[in-house]
């Protein structure tokens, strides 16, 4: 009993649970969802195999937890996760901005903004927070617009 209650405090008990849940939901989807039959085993065969493997793996993770093997997430979990969400937001924002302001301006704004965010006193370090991003933008522009010619709007200004 003791071993079980201690298992409940371990992170990997929950990662195992999520793994198993994904597998179970997937199998239910195959059983009751809208899957068209197809030639040679059908389109659901490989996903089904993967879901079963997920459930087995989840049980394996639980076994490891009971034997005292559990990984702990890093302590700065929240910062890493919010950085991740931030990067996704900035990436999407940059593409949205390219549609509005064009390639050069958006890339320059993104680079300057990001460098300033990561530097303690951005204005004091202006060569690295303003000048370097502008030079990088020029190089990126030469590479992607002049050489590769990607189908994105070029720029508002030039």
């Amino acid at each position: 009993m003791n071993i079980l209650t201690r298992a409940l405090t371990r992170t990997d008990f929950y990662t195992g649970l999520v793994t198993i849940l994904v597998g179970v939901v997937g199998l239910l989807d195959i059983a009751y969802g809208n899957w068209r039959p197809g030639p040679g085993l059908g389109p659901h065969a490989f996903p089904q195999l993967a879901y079963i493997a997920l459930i087995c793996a989840g049980l394996g993770i639980w076994v490891d937890v009971l034997r005292g093997k559990s990984d702990d997430p890093p302590s700065n979990l929240r910062i890493i996760l919010s950085t991740g969400i931030g990067l996704v937001a900035v990436g999407m924002g940059m593409f949205w901005l390219i549609g509005k302001l064009g390639f050069v301006v958006s890339v320059a704004i993104t680079l300057i903004g990001a460098s300033c965010l990561l530097t303690r006193e951005p204005l004091k370090h202006w060569p690295s927070t303003i000048l370097v991003p502008i030079i990088s933008t020029a190089v990126i522009w030469a590479l992607f617009v002049q050489l590769i010619n990607i189908p994105l709007p070029r720029a508002l200004l030039f």
Partner: peptide
């Protein structure tokens, strides 16, 4: 176990 889970994913 985690490796198998990742392969399945």
């Amino acid at each position: 176990a985690k490796g198998v889970a990742m392969a399945a994913l």
